[in-house]
Amino acid sequence: MTAVPALAVEDLSVEFRTRSGTVKVLDHVGFSVDKGETVALVGESGSGKSVTAFAVMGILDPAGRVTSGRALFGGADLLALSEHDLAEQRGRELSMIFQNPRTALNPIRKVGQQIADVLVRHGGATRPDAPRAAVEMLKRVRIPDPERRVEAYPFELSGGMCQRIMIAIALACRPALLIADEPTTGLDVTTQAVIMDLIGELAHESGMATIFITHDLALAAEYCDRIVVMHAGHIVEAAPARELFAHPRHPYSAKLLAATPGETVSLAELASIPGGLPDLRRPDLPACRYSDRCERRLDDCARPLPHRVIGERHTVSCWNPL
């Protein structure tokens, strides 16, 4: 089976200008997501997962700047599109779900209207039809009593309900790609599973490609086909989920796995990863940004990062993989 990539990110670099210098947040990042596939972007806070998503969506903070790369989506380079053309795509062809659903929704607009706004904007419904279409969307995300709930404001709904509304907004126009940025952060564990199942089912139904951003490797392994591990703005390893879990090759992936609670690992056995992310403002950043924390460091590690293909769809950027 030759899969068609829904999104192919190539060589993406992003810099942020701050008062204390330029931060090289993303450094030549590349990965792809096939149609119908779910890919997880995994890494600790500050590794550049969300920035990757924001860059692809074209909603980077004004201080952020894409310095190189392409994001091929439906035959066009999203990074080269004008703001106007990109806005046409956003919400219709590619959508995004954010963490903290309560703050991600407009607090003083009825949730039905917020769904209707997206539908009307992208021609999914006309203004008079929009309320009915919004009720339909609420049914799709399985909100009980949708006729009454369209009239609700976000503060009248629970966090899980709000995330369903977010999903309804994101999927209203049946996009080809969904980016879910830590969609279950701030939700309780049972709700987390329900939301993840819902996203998975809806994606499966419509053959939608999904990028799932998380720091929770266990959650990623459970719901995703492939896992892309990020560290300090680099992609260190990309592999099918099962393979990564069984045989992590990059030292960082291995450490991340060891820090993930699971059925066989008790809390006492969990290992924390020594050190922290390097200061990305440093002018003399090492080629491998993990090398300062790495136990398997060699002299070779000062050379430019390799991009080794070590299995089917399994790549690792390390001179001394496990």
Partner: peptide, 11 residues
Amino acid sequence: DFIRTARASGL
């Protein structure tokens, strides 16, 4: 956050 959502929805 909700402005980011609105922008991400292409409004």
